[in-house]
Amino acid sequence: MSLLALERVNKRFGGLRALGDVSFVLESGQIFGLIGPNGAGKTTLFNVVTGVYRPDTGRVVFDGEDISGLRPAAVAARGIARTFQNIRLFRSLTVEENVMVAGHHMQQASLIGAVFRTQSHAKDELALRTRAHELLQIMGLSAFAGDVAGSLPYGSQRRLEIARALMLKPKLILLDEPAAGMNSQEADELKRQIRFLRDELKLSVLLVEHNMSVVMGVCDRIHVVDHGETIAEGTPEEVRRHPRVLAAYLGKESGESGRPARSSEA
């Protein structure tokens, strides 16, 4: 069943066409990779899906509903959670509080309940805290629960972003370069955790990543864009061999066959 479908999405910034007629279908339960060289339009695409930008033309359909043009908070409340390329944690809050905050839209008790500290408010707080701790455990962050988020090491901050996104109880999670700045050991751990999202939490994942070992290692399907246009889609094996993908990443027929793939910098 299709969970997220982009239908001929276009987005221009002045004279620059950031996305031109991009279409794809993400099936429920898939880990869907989105790759392409720098400036290909991956982040724009993320921003269109999450409601930061409204597409000029075309539609974004999530779970049978047209969500193009909704505000980010409304998109998030419908079950699309995201992480950010340049980490955006609530730095002065603790690790635990960062996760709890994302439960805001599920909270029952009113403001009055909070001011007068009623029992239903206490129950809500406990439920939020319990769930936050479960998620921290999944992401291997339990030991840091009480620490200030800004003080965590880089890799842990990235994993905290995932834990926070999970708190929304999403159906789809968008990961924007989750392996950036991770060493190979951390990246392996991340791969395991992304698979866990799909297999145990029954989530679908839309993944933007430059680390090819992660992309090829976890994705069920990969969509490749360059200059705002789709150039290929298929399984990791198909994409790896696709001539247009090779051209986009390595340059066209330059004859320098000995040059290594620039997967880390592309």
């Binding site: 998030a76 955006r88 809050l93 905050v101 001011v115 809500d124």
Partner: peptide, 26 residues
């Protein structure tokens, strides 16, 4: 009480990073 509740945390989240707060359905 308001500050040390979910609402207060969400207010702090807005201070810390409004874009991220928005993406967390706040």
């Amino acid at each position: 009480h308001l500050t040390f509740s979910q609402t207060g945390r969400s207010l702090t989240a807005i201070r810390e990073d409004e874009i991220a707060a928005e993406a967390m359905a706040i």
